[in-house]
Amino acid sequence: MTRILLNSRLDDCLSAWRSAGYRVIAPSRSNNLTSFDEVASAADMALDLVLPERTIKDHFFPQTEPLVRYEIKKQQIDTEEMLPPDDKRVFFGVRPCDAAGLDIDDPLFGWDYKDQYWFKRRENSVIVTIACTKADPFCMCTSVNLGPDNPKGSDIMLHPLKDGRGWQMVTLTDRGKALLETVVPMLQEDAAETASLANVPVKFDVEKAMTWLADPANFESHFWKEISQRCIGCGSCTFLCPTCHCFDIQDEGDTYSGIRRKNWDSCSFAMFTMHTSGHNPRNTQSMRWRQRIMHKFNYYRGKFGVNSCSGCGRCTRQCPVDMGITETLQEITNTAK
């Protein structure tokens, strides 16, 4: 016997969560874009999507975020810290790759300095993930040792029922249990068969690729130039990546007052490593693409013990020139001894 949430009771859950002080955020379609947005009812959710175009990351590490308001006066400087709102949030209908992305980024934001902008949001959010029963040609979670029902980063996992009536609900964390408590009357105890999971073929041998990347002899390989020749150097892959986390700090205002902001930045941009002197240590696109791959599958693991890729496939899916992690790691896997 397991707990079942029926489709027909989802709106009741939403009301219960709202009464308990949660905002409900789910995949939705608006303005010709699919992304995670606050929803008023189950009808606003786009749960049929394999994956929204934009990631859940947007709600934890927004593309631009105010940090401090400052004002420079004659004798003093006034500052006012601008922390994110305290509101509690339920993320409903997250995919396992996006949920895993949050978990992958946790050590980064808590490594030497605990980034309260990230963790305040993390602590106030409950991730309700729906296991995938369908995938598209770009999905590659199984290639990075995750999968269509991987629990990493999720507080509750929903397994779609075979008959399509709803989901089997499995709580994974205390936060998940606490959320479930708020909707117990809407659930039923039942034995029901769950739908079969999406078949996501393994596309590359990540262990083999990592070994190749770790070999210093390959750092200057001609491979990097070949594979990145068509890269146009935009930030689409990094900005749509659930784990890419680089940012730039900018002061916006005039000499005397303004707001210090944290803005997304991308290792794909030539400006990313440009020195004040004009020297750029990564002065070609191949060096930048190499950096992105090395960071995800070598450096990040070295520092935090996990690869910085959750296999969502957005980098390839939305690349204007059809590049992406899959092709690069496939090529490495195919050529590595």
Binding site: N31, L33, Q63, I232, G233, C234, G235, S236, T238, F239, L240, W264, S266, F269, P320, V321
Partner: peptide
């Protein structure tokens, strides 16, 4: 305003 609100300044439009 609604359309530009979606922009993430990835500069793909410029680069391509």
């Amino acid at each position: 305003k609604e359309q530009f609100a979606k922009c993430i300044k990835c500069y793909a439009c410029r680069q391509v």
